[in-house]
Nucleic acid binder design. Structure first.
Lengths: 210, 210
DNA sequence: TAGATTGTTAATCGATTAACAATC
DNA sequence: TAGATTGTTAATCGATTAACAATC
């Protein structure tokens, strides 16, 4: 599937294409041209065609792209055609928000277990998912075929838990802590740094006013 | 402050510089060279110097950068030297997570009020902040000098509420809903699309395995 | 003064846009 | 066939890296 290396710039646009194609699908659209998509998404038609052609020719000259087919294919490229099993570390508000968000499950991201240092939470459930004590983390991961660890805990704890995850062989971490994790080459980290995002907004406010 | 236009690529690196400088400050470091920072942050020294020089010469030849001073200056560039007043729309888990995260307040982001459609929540408090019914939104914004509206509600509601915010003159929206808001030119939007982030991770998992 | 390190210019690299031949 | 629109090559633009003179 990957002859040449695809740039992260392209990859970060794929979920957005996927989202718009999903909308078109819901509206019952059968086909869409790069020009039409360009207008809706406010990116150049040229970029859309270039981006898609990194992965193969999904369109047809004189016709455009079949919405259902392209949606399906981008889904596959994004790995949404297979199930992912996650553990969530941190049963606070942020962790609960993620556990309660049903759409992740719809896309194949299944939260298998939640872990928290607070023993009074253990045994309780967030939606359908049980909360376990931290010392059961390693055993759980090894017996439940876990792909992704989600860190919704403060930064000091995140560094420590990340190391535990790495030690028991986890290959991907979705990190919400405000820290850059140091991980081996074969471990993937995707960061969601909320405060960075808010600061960007703040910068743009300050700049616009000047 | 802004002679030439600064690219968003540069801006999105500023919070990360700020974070590392904060750490250095906490460790008691007095000075840092671009080379040293380069090693810690894993970006080129050249990029650090280029980025900083967009905003002025903060360093000194033969010495490097004074940590306290540079931290302070980047804070100012990011607009962290002034207070921002926010309203949060959506008192669910995600909204509560943000309301409970004390560090935003430490950086001058003050949550003045929380709004929710669920009337049973109204009158209650999340940390120190009261939850109000949706029909008080406009009046509240106009009487409390609100800069930023934070949308932690589902996508259909987000579009509608965004329009209400725009109509009563809000100039910045921090959007957590999985939708691209259509706003006038003078309204800033910063998106946090969690599912896009998770899909990127999923792509990278699928690709690494191939 | 000698050494270190910035600020900044020039070179390179990569990503975006434009153009158009291929083709449905 | 004529019109539309892709896939793809070439041109442009912008961002990153390298190099080095200025200077602390």
């Amino acid at each position: 599937m990957e002859e040449k290396e695809i740039s992260q710039a392209v990859i970060s646009r794929l979920p957005r294409y996927f989202r718009y194609l999903g909308d078109l699908k819901d509206e019952g659209a059968e086909r869409v041209s790069s020009q039409e998509l360009s207008r809706i998404m406010k990116v150049t038609a040229s970029q859309i065609r270039q981006d898609l052609n990194n992965f193969g020719g999904f369109g047809q000259q004189g016709y455009g792209y079949n919405v259902d087919y392209l949606y399906e294919e981008i889904g596959k490229i994004l790995g949404l055609d297979r199930k992912h099993h996650l553990v969530l570390i941190g049963a606070g508000n942020l962790g609960s928000a993620i556990a309660n968000y049903m759409n992740f499950e719809k896309r194949g991201f299944i939260i298998s277990g939640i872990f928290d240092v607070d023993l009074t939470l253990c045994g309780k459930k967030v939606r359908e998912v049980e909360v376990y004590p931290m010392d059961e983390l390693e055993a759980f991961i090894q017996t439940h075929d876990i792909d992704i660890g989600v860190l919704t805990i403060p930064k000091a704890a995140a560094v420590e838990v990340a190391n535990r995850l790495i030690d028991c062989g986890i290959k991907a971490i979705w990190n919400f802590a405000h820290v850059d994790l140091q991980v081996p080459d074969d471990v993937l980290v995707e960061n969601v740094h909320l405060s960075d995002s808010l600061m960007k907004l703040s910068y743009n406010i300050a700049t616009r006013e000047a």
